[in-house]
Design a protein around this nucleic acid. Structure first.
Length: 414
RNA sequence: GGAGACGUGGGUGAGUUGGCUGAAACCACACCCCUGCUAAGGGUGCGUAUCCUAACCGGGUACCGAGGGUUCGAAUCCCUCCGUCUCCGCCA
């Protein structure tokens, strides 16, 4: 959630900043009014409560002293009745405010490039030269078929479309990648965690998936539980509603989880192959950082993800997202796009974001800064998406006969 | 899943015939004083959120697992849910 006090006191500036994310001024001005209304409603209600409390105290005193209470009782009853509409007003104001406030995206950083969609993203650098083929490189689904690696039909049979089964070497390669990623992250100082794959609504709200993006989530029937769309949710919410000692920062966490997404709204996109699935494996990095140090941590995370791709010998490029392409919670995001020679293009394989205090405010994650409690910054990033790495290896390491080499660093994991 | 017990501040733990308890006491922690010794003693402070305010000074409101209810007034009474422990059942 954005800082409503900041919005109130710096409306012009706040409004200008959120333009980048496509939030119009009218909405923000409405939000500002709702905030003022809630404050006014609460002030009125709290004054009435204060009155009620002091009269109640008197009430007890009178009784002890054996005084007559009928007059006081009448006053206190009248005040209580007068509070009913005040209570209603405050409740409505709160509901109105939060239903809007929770749907407002985070401010982008000032140096985030202008732009409306991925066309306007800025390529920062390329790492590793794509290999040149002396034959026509195949796309991963063709390679999958030749090698018997991915059973799309049976994935669909078992579940529905956008589910697949990895078989034999591919299943082992998937597992090897998970282990390789976790080991690498651990060596960089990330604590490895194995977390629940379902989280409750409050946690999903903490990281920003709820209430706005419920349609993208698989909900467990009859339970207050959702299948996680990313390990960012459980890892970040590890410290939901907690106050961390300053010297524990940054908290670095990594974990492997499957991720579940309905992919509502992406009908028809990437239907071929294994690029976009309802369930995919991912190893995630999450950092809880001191606000003054989150930029450093961010750079470290980008570098780590890039280094993993380099270690695997996978050519990739580093792309800074423009304002319009930024996710809901992100103030800044860098994507890593891996080269897919079969598709002849770069495709996203990691996305690293700094959400600043946006998630921290929702999830109430603070640290002790001297005597005061301050919101932390939270960061998250993939290192890496496992299924897409598998695809990248298939396409980049293919031979003319359709066989696939295993990258050197993975051999000890196979 | 069934039966019983229980859920208080960083920890231990009072408080359950409703009011003077936002909450005793002790421990831990912070600062100060005393003391020249590898100890002890004394004092003060020590929850979170939000509103008023220039203010981390003062005051209001809310919070004793969560959410409702009864009442002038609830940590204390009632209901629902969640969780913990014990016994039984079940299972990887």
């Amino acid at each position: 959630m954005i800082d409503l006090k900041y919005l109130q006191n710096n409306f012009e500036e706040a409004s200008a900043r959120l333009q980048k994310k496509g939030v119009d001024t009218d909405t923000l001005s409405h939000l500002k009014n709702l905030f003022a209304e809630l404050k006014a409603a609460n002030a009125a209600l709290e004054a009435a409560k204060a009155e009620q409390n002091s009269m109640s105290k008197l009430f007890g005193q009178y009784k002890r002293e054996g005084k007559d209470i009928t007059e006081l009782k009448a006053k206190v009853d009248a005040n209580k009745e007068a509070m009913v509409p005040l209570q209603e007003r405050a409740r409505e104001a709160e509901e109105a405010l939060f239903s809007l406030a929770l749907a407002i995206p985070n401010f982008p950083d000032d140096d985030v490039p202008e732009g409306v969609d991925e066309e306007d993203n800025v390529e920062l650098r390329r790492v590793l030269e794509p290999r040149s083929f002396d034959f026509e490189p195949l796309e991963h689904w063709a390679l999958a078929e030749k090698n018997g690696w991915i059973d799309f039909e049976r994935g669909v049979k078992l579940a529905k479309s956008r589910f697949a089964v990895l078989r034999g070497e591919a299943a082992r390669l998937e597992r090897a990648l998970i282990n390789f990623f976790l080991d690498t992250n651990r060596q960089k100082g990330f604590e490895e965690l194995c977390v629940p794959f379902m989280n409750n609504a409050q946690m999903l709200q903490g990281t920003g998936q709820l209430p706005k993006f419920e349609d993208d989530l698989f909900k467990v029937e009859g339970e207050d539980l959702y299948l996680i769309p990313t390990a960012e949710v459980p890892l970040t919410n590890m410290y939901h509603d907690e106050i961390l000692p300053e010297d524990t920062l940054p908290v670095l966490m990594t974990g492997y989880t499957p991720c579940f997404r309905k992919e509502a709204g992406s009908a028809g996109r990437d239907t071929r192959g294994m690029i976009r699935q309802h369930q995919f494996d991912k190893v995630e990095m999450v950092a809880i950082a001191h606000p003054d140090k989150s930029d450093e941590v961010f750079e470290m995370m980008v570098q780590n993800a890039s280094d993993i791709l380099t270690a695997l010998g996978l050519p990739h490029r580093v792309v800074e997202l423009c304002g319009g392409d930024l996710g809901f919670s992100a103030a800044r995001t860098i994507d890593l796009e891996v080269w897919l020679p079969g598709q002849n293009k770069y495709r996203e394989i990691s996305s690293i974001s700094n959400t600043r205090d946006f998630q921290a405010r929702r999830a109430k994650i603070r640290f002790k800064d001297g005597k005061k409690n301050r919101l932390v910054h939270t960061l998250n990033g993939s290192a890496l998406a496992v299924g897409r790495t598998l695809i990248a290896i298939m396409e980049n390491y293919q031979n003319e006969d359709g066989s696939i080499e295993i990258p050197e660093v993975l051999k000890k994991y196979m």
